Structures are given as structure tokens and as C-alpha cells.
Computed example of a mutant assay.
Amino acid sequence: MSTAPRPDDRNRDRDPEGRARNARPRDGLGRPLPYGTEGVERQPEGITRTPEETVTQAQALLDAGRPFHAHEVFEDAWKSGPDDERDLWKGLAQLAVGLTHSARGNLTGGARLLLRGAGAIDAGRRGERPYGIDVEGLVLWARQLAEYLEADGPTVDAAEHAPRLRGADGE
């Protein structure tokens, strides 16, 4: 077996540390666009934010119809946060990706991710509002949207169907 790099490996986009990182521009739903096309600003990766900053930034992205980018904010919190909060942030990331897939037209995948995310944020948090997050409201939102998608509902508009992380009265 040869250890020589494949021709496509030499041409891969890399970050400053040399890790493979796709530098293609992306649209609001995170889909790669051709090089040279103007895309939306990407979320920097590996940022440590406070929980308040995470929720506020993710809500702004969700409201703007950019759930893929909100998922990246949640993913940073999941990877950098305390172990006992990882399920919360991972579940929120799954909700955002579920909305992303739904808006892209992948209704089955979207519904599955919404239900998986709802289960993760609901686990042991019934009645709680960590960082003001409306866990019960988000679980209800995710289950209702998944049910709609499973009934072959049309592709959803990401901004129109964005959840309110802190409920109707929150940000």
C-alpha cells in the first residue's frame, strides 16, 4: 500500500495548522458554493464563548435563516464546555442541523435530527431553563416540526421556522 499522497490531497484547502479545511464559500444553509462565488460570512471555528454569548449569537443566526452557522456556534460550546453540559449543546447543534436539512429539502434527515436533538436537550432537564433556554418549548417545536416533515410537508423556510431559544419572551 502506497503512503504517497493522492493527487487530490495536495490540492486540499488547509487551515494555518495544516488540517484539511474546506475554504469554499457557503450559502446561508451551509452548502458549498463554487470558488470565486460570494457566500455568507462563515463562523470562525474553535471559539470559546460564554453560554450567554453562545445563545445570543446562535439566535441571531437562526433568525437570519442561517441554522447551519448556528450549529457551528453550538458545536464550539459542546466541544469547549463542561462535560455535564455537552448533551445540551450537542442537542442544540442537532436541532440547528435538523432545521438546516429541512430547509435544504432533506425532510427525513431533518426530522430525525430534530427528534435526536430534542431527546438530547430534554434528557434530565424537564422544567429547567439552563441559561434561559426554553428546553420544553424547543422540544415541542422540534417534535411538531418533525411531525410536519414526516407527513411530507414541503421544504421549510429556515428563518420562518427558526425556534426561539429562550421562548416567545426571550431573545
Results as ranks from 00 to 15, higher is better:
48 T>M: 00
51 P>T: 01
53 E>N: 03
54 T>P: 05
61 L>S: 09
63 D>N: 14
65 G>W: 08
65 G>P: 12
65 G>H: 11
66 R>W: 09
68 F>A: 15
69 H>A: 14
70 A>F: 10
73 V>T: 14
80 S>M: 04
81 G>C: 04
82 P>Y: 03
84 D>I: 00
84 D>L: 01
85 E>I: 02
85 E>L: 06
89 W>P: 02
90 K>M: 12
93 A>Q: 13
95 L>K: 08
96 A>L: 04
98 G>V: 07
98 G>T: 06
100 T>W: 08
102 S>G: 15
107 L>S: 13
109 G>P: 09
112 R>K: 14
112 R>S: 12
112 R>P: 00
114 L>R: 05
114 L>E: 08
117 G>S: 08
118 A>R: 05
118 A>L: 10
123 A>C: 01
123 A>Q: 14
128 E>F: 01
130 P>N: 05
132 G>Y: 03
133 I>S: 07
138 L>N: 13
139 V>Y: 04
139 V>S: 07
141 W>T: 05
142 A>H: 08
148 Y>H: 15
150 E>R: 14
151 A>Y: 01
153 G>K: 05
154 P>Y: 08
155 T>K: 15
155 T>A: 14
157 D>R: 14
160 E>F: 11
162 A>W: 03
163 P>W: 10
165 L>E: 10
166 R>W: 04
